[in-house]
Design a protein around this nucleic acid. Structure first.
Lengths: 226, 226, 226, 226
DNA sequence: TATGAATGAGGGTTCATTCAT
DNA sequence: TATGAATGAACCCTCATTCAT
């Protein structure tokens, strides 16, 4: 990326990414914010024109920034993942009790609408982009640390891994398409808490199957569909 | 279902429902079965023509049986709800241990693809149809019984209600649209087990909000959307 | 195609092309006719909606018959090629003088708007469809015969082949996109006549390059485009 | 072009055209060159952004020089017409035999991609611009001279005029849109030669219709289109 | 002036729904 | 009744053109 010299292009580099314009950047952020909201509220299939309208821009501008829906979804996923990773790191840093930190992260992730990440498990989603893998690894690392600490303190059962937490968390907070009823949130909190209780040590049961990391999830290939 | 008596036309009602033909009934069942499969595999927005094709009938035939998508969804929800209610009753009848019965129901509901019920929470879904309410009450009653019994035996925490279980169950087993990866099932089992562990008494935390019945969920009105 | 038994499907063939409906066939013909006119008048890039409107049908109906523009172009090319082949055979049958037959064919082809065939030389046009090859071979055979006869009678120069005639004929009669000026036709007649005069024996010059058949033209692959 | 004197601002005309900057002129030429190439390769409907990119400039710069596609086409037509006129004059000057000069011109025009002139016959093309008429007259004059000389020498038939030659020449060399197959050129040479043979005296037939000048062609108004 | 970005209008295509056989 | 066909509305996307840097 040559970030150091990026702002001073020499004659040897003729016109290479000549500094993104301020309003373009602002538009890009607006689009991602609008898309995140609408993905959460309406599902990943909302008309892109609606997103553009919510972002207050023309439809073609959206296409300039994100050539197709996949690109937009990827960018939203990236943005959410970053925010959730930050939440995990913040929880670890600011909470002294290990399980309290885990709980705080879970609620923070819900607030960040982590359910918006679920399109990344869909068919056709490109899981292997470098940026995405980097962000995923960052999130994975932060949550792994949170869980390891809780496990060391004897509060988290041994037989669960990051994948268990993240997928259940995503599913439990997943938005109902077409349902923008705010009441649902209070129920989600209860489900999360019950799930957290189930995560506590000592384990009250033996889990079927095996634990999974985020990488495992990323590797899962969707089966062919007729 | 009780179709035998319900449709028997008396002499006083001249031809109100002129006897559904055998093949028509078979078609109706085929459509519902195909729709349930495809809702689970592809989401509730699959093209109706695809459902018709999977059911092996013409598209217009589908419309004869179900005038629009909502009708079809309602019928599928009804069918699933019936099957899940039966599963609850069976679990109660055949399992001696109260929490084992609850667990068996949870897994049976997962097998019945209870996640396909989630469209009933969507905007535009008509929750107040008599048939639907009857079926919902039956399911509610059966699960309430299961939970009451488990609570009486001291195995289920006091602060949870049917709505908590059913919504979380639906969410955790909810299919990923466009993702037909079978691996996901093994993870779902783990999540359900962890959730069940969180349901056990003694309660390991104090739940936020209040417990909800299925009736409460049905009353929730989706907020207006621009 | 099993045309003989097509109207009486046995139980052994469950629903295989259950007889095309009369109005569907009529629509198909209307679309092809409208498309041919508009391709000739406006070029191959006319909006398909315009074709549908000219054909007096809805736009989606056009897509039911021809899934994309390529399919439609292929069908139009086929139809024109058939008509032109018939014209060649008719000219051969009804004209006693060999060169007169050739001339009659050339003018008939112009009247059939053979210039509408030119899209078949465009990039992305699928040249290798069986039906297309059959039609092309029929046309090639008919014109080859016409030319052979004229050559035997000493009226046609030896160094020209079917490809020379057909491509020049297509180009000279090619419609000007956006130009529906009828005056142009009288000029086209002059050009065709001049070209025919150039085809007469004895040859007034030595032609560069080599003669080409229609097959040769079909084999030409368009080079990659940046 | 006579740019030197035409744009020299006198003291009486205060800054009517404030001296075109060197790089602006260079850009203008680049655009025309790029447009000519792409019109020939891809047809007159290529996206203007593509032309700008091929020319190595921004899209808005193209619009500064040519407010719309029509202006650009006009300029390209002008440029090509100039080059073809020069070719005609050169052929007349350097070739002693009259018909050889005509033949040389025909091939030179093909090399100059005279087929790129065909948009000038399209609907919406503004034929009556002074510059265009001047250029057209120059070309007309040069070709008329060539033909007159060949006619005087008894090598060119009497019943053809400039319009016959130029339109046929344009059509026969016209590029196939989307087809950049180089093989076609060898065939074009054959067609041109055959056409030239048809032009030779003595006339082998009587031509239908009447001969046309370039002016006649310019006068032809496209008929109204639905 | 040259440029990247923004935009609205329009074309291609799909899909829920209706029609006619 | 069951069906293939027809339809228009809506979505995605492109492109000519304008705006702001």
């Amino acid at each position: 990326m040559s970030t150091a010299t990026a702002t001073a292009p020499t004659a040897a580099e003729p016109r290479r990414a000549p500094r993104p314009r301020a309003d373009a950047l602002r538009n890009r952020e607006r689009i991602i914010a609008a898309a995140r909201e609408m993905f959460v509220e309406e599902g990943a299939m909302v008309p892109l024109d609606e997103i553009a309208r919510r972002a207050g821009i023309g439809n073609a501008t959206l296409y300039r920034h994100f050539p197709d829906r996949a690109e937009l979804i990827t960018s939203v996923v990236l943005a959410v993942m970053e925010r959730v990773a930050v939440a995990a790191e913040t929880a670890a840093a600011e909470e002294s009790d290990a399980f309290a930190a885990l709980r705080r992260f879970v609620y923070a992730a819900a607030d960040e609408r982590i359910g918006a990440l679920c399109p990344m498990l869909s068919e056709g989603f490109e899981r292997n982009l470098p940026e995405l893998e980097a962000s995923r690894d960052r999130l994975d690392g932060a949550v792994t640390d949170l869980m390891a600490r809780a496990r060391r303190s004897g509060q988290l059962r041994d037989d669960v891994a990051v994948g268990d937490l993240m997928v259940a968390l995503s599913q439990l907070t997943r938005p109902l398409p077409g349902t923008a009823c705010p009441n649902i949130d209070q129920f989600v909190r209860r489900h999360l808490q019950l799930f957290l209780d189930g995560l506590q040590a000592p384990a009250r049961s033996e889990l079927p199957g095996t634990a999974a990391t985020l990488q495992d999830l990323s590797q899962m290939q969707p089966s062919a569909v007729g």
